[in-house]
């Protein structure tokens, strides 16, 4: 067995630490409540996320126009309009309402963010649980798989995959799920190694509970906050990755995302036109959603690793 170096890119956690006892799902929920009660940043992050989620859900109501709808006047497209009360953020060089695109863009961002986060957390947690609990050759093979995933360059892999399959946001989610489980699974695994030695797990074993029962009812609840931590980080990475892939021109042409908007703006020379109303909002929106994911993960960190909070 090797020593793994676990570096959480955002929080700076270098090793997973023993959690306080407690074995039931209620413990997980309590932890969650605690995260947002104690940490103002985490709460801010949650509020931002909920805000964007509401926008995404009610996008058709909020947005005055469709994302690809061309605004016409006398047979001419109303292109490069400056912001006004009619067009809050002006129009694109091909006559689309930028504000409406921004609103609809939140749907893609959150869809990509949440589904990638879910996939990463679920796969990583299951792999980590199985590897940590069973040990032996299962552990060896799964962790070598994680090594493989660590060795594959992330962005190039996604670009190649998206270019080879039909461009779609789901390919991006798939590619992220295929690679990013590695971080989560390693941390979860070492956490499981610790937890499974604890008294309540041994008690379960003695009372004749099946392995699956032990994994999911005894061990899983105590590592769920860790999954949540890595999941909330993945939200940010997913949104940034989608934006980068769109910027390089490999995105789904039928879907307006913030990354697509920025790509469109740059390719239509919005900078040279001084159309900052076209460039700044999507970038800010990306930054805010990604940061909200980071804030939330910091909240988990502070609850999970209370030492950092003492001071």
């Amino acid at each position: 067995m090797q020593h793994e170096i676990k570096v959480n890119e955002i929080t700076g956690i270098t090793d997973a630490k023993v959690l306080s006892g407690g074995s039931l799902l209620t413990n997980f929920l309590r932890t969650n409540a605690e995260v947002f009660k104690r940490d103002r940043l985490a709460l801010t992050g949650l509020i931002i996320l909920v805000f964007f989620a509401l926008i995404a859900i009610f996008a058709p109501v909020i947005a005055p126009r469709g994302p690809f709808e061309v605004i016409e006047a006398d047979g001419f497209w109303l292109s490069n309009e400056k912001p006004s009360t009619d067009y809050l953020l002006g129009t694109t060089n091909l006559g689309r309402d930028i504000f409406s695109q921004l609103i609809y863009g939140s749907r893609v961002a959150l869809l990509v963010g949440f589904s990638a986060a879910l996939a990463v957390a679920v796969i990583g947690t299951i792999v980590g649980l199985i590897a940590g609990f069973y040990g032996g050759w299962v552990d060896t093979i799964l962790m070598r798989l994680a090594d493989v995933a660590f060795g594959i360059p992330f962005l190039p892999f996604i670009i190649v995959l998206v270019a080879f399959l039909t461009p779609s946001i789901w390919i991006i989610v798939l590619a992220m799920a295929m690679l990013l489980w590695r971080d989560t699974s390693r941390v979860i695994r070492s956490q499981v190694l610790v937890v499974k030695e604890q008294a309540f797990v041994s008690a379960g074993k003695v009372s004749g509970a099946s392995n699956l029962r032990i994994i999911f009812l005894y061990i899983a609840p105590s590592i769920l906050p860790l999954s949540a931590l890595y999941g909330s980080l993945a939200i940010g990475w997913a949104i940034l990755t989608e934006a980068s892939v769109s910027f390089l021109g490999f995105s789904d042409p039928d879907v307006v995302s913030w990354g697509f908007m920025l790509q469109d703006a740059f390719n239509s020379q919005a900078l040279s036109r001084g159309a900052y109303y076209w460039i700044i909002p999507p970038g800010l929106a990306i930054m805010l959603t990604v940061m909200s994911g980071f804030f939330i993960s910091r909240g988990y960190e502070e609850v999970l690793f209370p030492r950092l909070r003492k001071h």
């Binding site: 299951i126 069973y134 299962v138 093979i141 099946s210 392995n211 699956l212």
Partner: peptide, 18 residues
């Protein structure tokens, strides 16, 4: 052990997915 089968199945599923 009866749980060996679970183990194999879940392992295969992961392999196929990844």
């Amino acid at each position: 052990m009866q749980n060996k089968r679970h183990l194999k199945i879940s392992f295969l599923v992961i392999l196929v997915v990844l």
